[in-house]
């Protein structure tokens, strides 16, 4: 199991690197799709069918939006030569990478080995959840019953985002009072 997920993760890393370095923006978007769809397979292997379903829908919608944006504008990557500013950003990237690796080393001692999750907090949600929520799917029970208010907040965020997109994309802006 660990080997299979490692292989898929390496595939995702390769896809991400290609997406970052592609000359054509459309191929970069498609290569970004590799990462999303590989994540679906990872979720299936990790016994999370709900996540796989949601992720495949979301990834498809994201891909459609991105392809629509790219086809509506330019596909050519503005190639930049390696100037002084590029050196500064590369140096920043290396520094941040080192700092994050230090944090990873500090945190890895607290991390349970793969496949040995302790379920310390989940016990209260698993035991007797079917009787209390009436849902055989424990994830649904957590999302819609124990954490119902969070889901309400999530719906609020979604509505706000849709309103924001509609406001930004409105073709005729309000005329300025001069």
């Amino acid at each position: 199991m660990e080997v299979a997920i490692s292989v898929i993760t390496i595939f995702m890393i390769l896809g991400a690197i290609y997406a970052i370095h592609a000359r054509d923006i459309l191929s970069a978007v498609i290569a970004g799709g590799i990462v999303g769809y590989s994540l679906v397979i990872c979720f299936l292997l990790l016994q999370a069918p709900d996540l796989a379903i949601v992720q495949i829908v979301v990834e498809t919608i994201t891909l459609i939006i991105m392809v629509a944006v790219v086809l509506d504008s330019s596909r050519v990557e503005a190639y930049s030569r390696f100037d002084r500013r590029a050196w500064i950003t590369a140096g920043t990237a290396v520094v941040i990478l080192l700092v994050l690796f230090w944090f990873l080393r500090a945190a890895s001692s607290h991390l349970a080995p793969f496949g040995e999750s302790s379920l310390r907090m989940a016990d209260a949600y698993i035991n007797g959840a079917v009787e209390r929520t009436g849902s055989v799917n424990l994830v649904t029970g957590v999302v819609f019953d124990f954490r119902g208010y969070d889901t309400l907040g999530e719906a609020t965020v979604l509505v706000t985002a849709v309103l924001g997109v509609l406001t930004i994309l409105r073709i005729n802006g309000k005329k300025k009072l001069t």
């Binding site: 999370a48 994201t62 944006v69 999750s117 994830v139 957590v142 999302v143 979604l158 849709v162 930004i168």
Partner: peptide
Amino acid sequence: VDPLPQALVLTAIVIGLATTAMLMAVII
């Protein structure tokens, strides 16, 4: 398997879609 991270990620995926859509709108 632990249902709590799955419920968390389920929320996060949908929020991620919302932010991406808004980002693309600003970019266009």
